[in-house]
Design a binder for these strands. Structure first.
Lengths: 148, 148
DNA sequence: CTGTCTGCAAAGCGTTTGCATAAAA
DNA sequence: TTTTATGCAAACGCTTTGCAGACAG
């Protein structure tokens, strides 16, 4: 899992968008954490460094980053969106119990894309491949969960 | 594509739920259309036959049917849920242009589930595998869409 | 300077819920 | 008769938007 070490400001500049402290902080937080975060969670984290930050700016920034292809958007089981800086094709595993989102190896993701295009005649732009289940930790904690 | 010919009322009874005209009409509409419909679309259609129907009842009925395993729920690109009576595992193809939802053959869906379980240690309960792209008809209509 | 981004508050949207009435079993 | 579903309207949670002032280029 080699991480991209390009500075966020360079990446924003090369995407041709205006660079502001808010945008830098949001993008940096997402990249450095390597996590899958909701807009709300991201807002709380970045607000510690920038108390004047507003949630609307976070949403606008995430939209902008997604359109620039710098982040990807997914959706949690509880119907909130989440965002992450890993833009390579991969699957998501979402625990129905602890709601943690983890990545699944990208093996087969591109093949699946190509297969879907071949079988359907569609031109695939993006996809959402998410598995919802119980993670190992939660299974161990509450064995009965495994059947819910 | 063999369709289930069991009567909706028998199916509802065997699911052990109370049978009402509203529930019958919603379930029947979903099954007979064979389509992927939003709660709103379903509401408009069934309301023609039952003018007193309320949207809240449609949502409650869809929740009930989903919990009984009689329908499945998915999500459109525009963030509304859609529902369908085909409960077999399969993928969805969602056109970014006309928003039509089509099914993709289930080949590999179960294998993918098993593989995800083996690779992750998760116990998978359900999954959401959706491809967003441009359908053939829309590609022909607006060739430039194919890159959007 | 000029265009656009920000923060705020209000609105928007799909969905859910409380309550009194109506209907199923 | 008892229990549960319905319709209505209001509330909900996440996200988007209009606007006036602030800031990047």
């Amino acid at each position: 899992m080699e991480r991209d070490h390009t500075s966020p400001s360079l990446t924003l500049q090369s995407a041709g968008v205006r660079v502001t402290p808010q945008r830098l902080a949001v993008f940096e937080e997402l990249r450095e954490s390597g996590e899958h975060l909701s807009a709300e969670a991201l807002f709380r984290r970045v607000k510690e460094r920038q108390p004047s930050l507003s949630l609307a700016t976070v949403y606008r920034t995430l939209d902008m980053l997604r359109e620039a292809g710098l982040i990807v958007e997914g959706r949690l089981g509880d119907e909130r969106n989440f965002y992450e800086a890993n833009v390579e094709p991969h699957f998501h595993l979402i625990c129905l119990n602890c709601h943690e989102v983890r990545d699944l190896s990208p093996e087969g993701a591109e093949a699946l894309h190509r297969e879907a295009e071949a079988n359907s005649g569609y031109r695939i732009h993006w996809s959402r491949l998410e598995f919802f289940g119980t993670c190992e930790a939660c299974q161990a904690r509450q064995p009965e969960m495994a059947r819910a």
